[in-house]
């Protein structure tokens, strides 16, 4: 686009070309893996061993170290997908399409994790596996939004059209997420069941907060690793007869 300075747009076009991106991903992956372990190991140790048990919930609260980061990631990835969708629609950038569709299963995975761990946490706290709590309900609807993206992409044969379709859908979804969130919140206060206890964390102690933030960082880096792996596959799938794929095959042979 003309309103972007030429050197920057050149940089983006170079980085966004599939062979360049493929080698860049290969260079980044080892570093990301190291960073991931550096965040994950102290995060798990701090959360599962160092942090004291909660005075009300005992050790069951330790699910927080995966539940809350997973719930954050589920929203974060959807917003990121919408940003990619916007870039894909405006600048017709293939790499943004690839990143968008590679993110969808990972985001759906995090949403599923947030739901299942929320349910596993709820059983000892509420005495039942499922409560129509505002956050769990919003998370469930978010899962449906993710499934809509993946099944629409799968249903459209021509993958260029499919990418445009899911870009539009991701943008529509991201506008709706806050509306859905607040409507569910309102609905929840209206139909409050007998179990009022929520998974609220009033003021979280620093020894619990640090591992939580470390785990959140670890999940972010995990996403970067997983999305690069998925994007590498998607790039080859899209243009299996391109010259750079042939070069890649010769390197492997």
């Amino acid at each position: 686009m003309s309103f972007i300075p030429a050197p920057i747009s050149r940089f983006f076009h170079r980085t966004a070309s599939p062979p360049h991106f493929y080698t860049l991903a290969d260079k980044l992956l080892p570093w990301l893996t190291v960073l991931f372990l550096l965040l994950l190991i102290p995060g798990l140790y701090g959360g599962l061993v160092m942090a004291p048990a909660d005075y009300q919930q005992g050790d069951s609260y330790r699910i927080i170290y995966i539940h809350v980061p997973a719930a954050w990631m589920s929203l974060f990835i959807y917003v990121l997908m919408a940003v990619m969708g916007g870039i894909a629609l405006v600048w017709r950038m293939k790499l943004a399409e690839v990143m968008l569709i590679s993110s969808a299963p990972i985001g759906a995975g995090f949403t599923l994790v947030a739901l299942v761990t929320g349910s596993l946490w709820g059983k000892p706290m509420w005495g039942t596996w499922w409560v129509w709590d505002a956050r769990l309900t919003s998370e469930l609807i978010l899962l449906f939004l993710y499934l809509g993206v993946t099944s629409l992409y799968g249903a459209i044969e021509d993958k260029r059209s499919a990418a445009r379709a899911v870009s539009i859908l991701a943008l529509v979804g991201v506008v709706n997420i806050p509306i859905i969130h607040y409507s569910v919140e309102w609905w929840n206060t209206l139909h409050q069941g007998p179990t009022v206890s929520k998974m609220d964390k009033p003021s979280i102690h620093i020894s619990m907060l640090i591992p939580l933030l470390l785990m959140a960082g670890a999940f972010k880096v995990y996403y970067a690793i997983a999305v690069l792996q998925a994007a590498k596959l998607e790039l080859i799938k899209r243009e299996p007869s391109a010259q750079w794929v042939k070069n890649l095959l010769e390197q492997n042979a």
Partner: peptide, 30 residues
């Protein structure tokens, strides 16, 4: 929006409801 996305598909009905129903949630609630 959902119909426009799926009109080119031969069997778009199921996907249409999967796309559209989550977006209907706020309308249903209010």
């Amino acid at each position: 929006i959902g119909v426009a996305l799926t009109v080119g598909l031969r069997r778009g009905g199921m996907i249409l409801s999967l796309l559209v129903l989550p977006l209907y949630v706020p309308v249903l609630i209010f």
